[in-house]
Amino acid sequence: MMLPRDYLKETPSQTGGPYVHIGMMPNLFDINGVIPEDLGGDIVLEGVKGERITIKGRIVDGGGNPVFDCVVELWQADANGIYNSPMEHRSGADPKCIGWGRQSADDNGEFAFETIKPGPVPAPGGGLMAPHVTLWIVARGINIGLQTRMYFSDEEAANAKDPILGKARMIGRDGTMIGKRDGDIVTFDIYLQGENETVFLDI
């Protein structure tokens, strides 16, 4: 027999509030000396394998205003599509690709990540997901952190077969998840609300 079992309930989310940087980027916001440097400044280290790129964009609210007081985090695989994580079951991740970064937006709502282009990652049940990075946004007014993915405009063939982009395509919104690549710059604007609202994920 199976004993009755109550699963615990997840701790509820609350907004990060207007002073989220005190907790996530204290040095950038003038709380110096507690920790030597803010976390998440280096997604990749010198000697990393792969194409160097800068992912940059602007975060905008439903009124067209810049979301100047947010924190954005990025999580990605290395150039071979392997995650540098204890939960990655495959070996061989590039030790120079940490894969995680954290940035603040500026007064114009603009953010930038210096990184490399990730490789494709295995999809559940076989096949590959197109190269992508996961982004997570917290700020005043955001009650639960927003997750999305950015794919790459120079990966049309892989994007066409990607299962997650496929779900967004069915509702005509896959374009909001594609970063536009121009040389080593990939531009990805994020709209929290409105006509161009970015696809956000329940994962």
Binding site: G62, R140, F200
Partner: peptide
């Protein structure tokens, strides 16, 4: 603050 920062989709 949530009103303009809440996704509607």
């Amino acid at each position: 603050s949530s009103t303009l920062r809440a996704p509607k989709q």
